[in-house]
Write a protein that binds this DNA or RNA. Structure first.
Lengths: 190, 190, 190, 190
DNA sequence: GATGAATGAGATTTCATTCAT
DNA sequence: AATGAATGAAATCTCATTCAT
């Protein structure tokens, strides 16, 4: 009954399947089982649909990253929570994640989104920097590069799932969380 | 005088600037200083141009990965050479890298490209596995996931440069190589 | 208000005027007073428009031929009805006739159309053959060749009208019917 | 060695196979085994190639028709010679014939060719009219329509061969000649 | 004569978006 | 709210023709 919601979910599925540019507005409407004109009651454009998916999905991530940062837990614990949240979302909303991975941050017009993406990176960087101050991280480690490495590890595994190159069942997710945390933490640790 | 080459380079520049989908065939031709019809003398379609850029750029990476694998050097050394080659390509052919980073996995038919990508992953996986046999890597470490983590770290840093979010001058590249090698090797090491 | 119909009729007029290959999709749309994009709402391609005109026009001829065959009337009567229907269509839908006469066998894929054409030929052949059994037709006459001759006579006269080489007013049509029937029937008769 | 000849023959074959509009200049050149640019040494345009084939092939027909007319032979004999020449050419230059049948007289721009086509019709009409004066043809028979009927019979049989719908071996040709002559002569005879 | 790279007008087709119903 | 016919800008691709070599 919430047509807006249905359209968003349908769009996520379609974008996930074919990519944003190759997805027609008609495909989304068909997936949602409505006439394509209806999409324009709820969104100004196809672009806005993507934008909305991005903000909804990414927004949650931003909030959670902040929460983790503010917890002040040890880095290893923070990494675990971040990895669990990020990779775990694959099980909850795989399509939205797929869209994020494929379309966002790679698109030539990241434009308006860049700040929100940066927020996550900054949070992660600050976590690592703080851990460094606490002596949990090697002194010669650049927190900025480290943040990119951690994030890249997470994103690549998501990509593997997205592209069907890595097994992405529930137990695989748990194993991936452990591995990423083990490797990155050991890699950064003093 | 090698018009095919000129068109390919022009296309890389244009794709890098505006993305594949937003680039018109006319843009490529204009960049190359020829009539757009000529592009169809050398390529069957705009898609084939992208495909060619992809194969060319990725091809050298495949070859180099093989070479590194066959060298049988210690894992740390192998990682260093891989990181140096991969990240170093940013200084050599930034446009092609930009195109690769942006377009891989965004077109509806990643299909054709996946095989060559997989070749690199398999090589990396085998390197880590071999190192594990030699006792250089922790026993509880899954080489497949580890390969994805290493690759993800590299690609994310490239993405940072592509998006202008990370400084990507020559000295930054060298530092990035060191950091990635330090972190991933320490993360994997026994 | 039946836009599909309007487009079909407009296309017939345009094709009749300039031939299929020289007609642009825009010409058809303009003739129908709509935007050219609308044509693709109703047809998959310009080719499909021609195909549809062909099938519609030829379809009634197939049906009528069958009806005439099943009537079991004497050959002369059958020839008269066939000629009247076939040549008479020049007065009813001259544009469609023009298109048929001009385009049949000129496009690279006559293939799809050949079956329906054959149906008429087979019907005509069977009529002549049956008449032969009844002793109305000379024993040494090959019904297949005879059918081609009859059909050729009809089509050539239509061609004459299409090309403006033969007068094609209502009374000319009636005279043509008589002449074709007289000549072919006398030619075949025992 | 006569490149011009080779190109003309190649063009006839290609036009016959795919129709004039669907034939590319490159197809003709490839068929002739030369570079496509060479065609423009011998002909001003693709159109001129068709024009040339038309004139060469049709020219012979015009001359022969005249000769037959001037022979003053009985109508039956004239019809036989005409049919033999016209249908017989299928065995000699089937491609050229195919082109004539498919492209000429049906094309929306018969323009310049109309006079030469008319010449054959006029000749045939005069033959029938003369025969009528000699009492060989029914008094109520319109020679103009009769000429179109005769010509249509011949052309349709050629079309049958062209489209592969009628068997067109040497003996079939002879049979077709007899049948057409028998039918049309009996049809016209007093 | 012979080649084929180069041109560019022009045609088809797609598809996001609008809007009357 | 919901529909889908209608629009038209824009993009890809084709191919006859030219011309330097």
């Amino acid at each position: 009954m919430d047509r807006r919601r249905e359209l968003l979910d349908a769009a996520a599925r379609v974008f996930a399947r074919k990519g944003f540019h190759s997805s027609r507005v008609g495909d989304i409407a068909e997936e949602a089982g409505v006439a394509h004109g209806l999409l324009y009651h709820y969104f100004r454009s196809k672009e806005e649909v993507l934008e909305t998916i991005f903000r909804e999905t990414w927004g949650v991530l931003v909030v959670e990253t902040q929460r983790i940062e503010e917890s002040g837990a040890p880095l290893r614990e923070q990494l675990r929570r971040l990895a669990r949240f990020y990779l775990g979302s694959w099980l909850v909303t795989p399509e939205a994640i797929r869209v994020l991975v494929r379309e966002i941050g790679r698109s030539p017009d990241v434009g308006g989104r860049v700040d929100e993406i940066r927020a996550v990176f900054l949070g992660l960087t600050r976590m690592i920097d703080a851990a460094k101050s606490r002596g949990e991280v090697r002194a010669d480690c650049d927190p900025v590069l480290a943040a990119w490495i951690v994030y890249g590890s997470l994103e690549e595994i998501l990509t593997g799932w997205v592209l069907g190159q890595l097994p992405g069942e529930a137990e695989d997710v748990e194993r991936a969380v452990s591995t990423v945390v083990d490797v990155t933490h050991a890699g950064l640790a003093a």
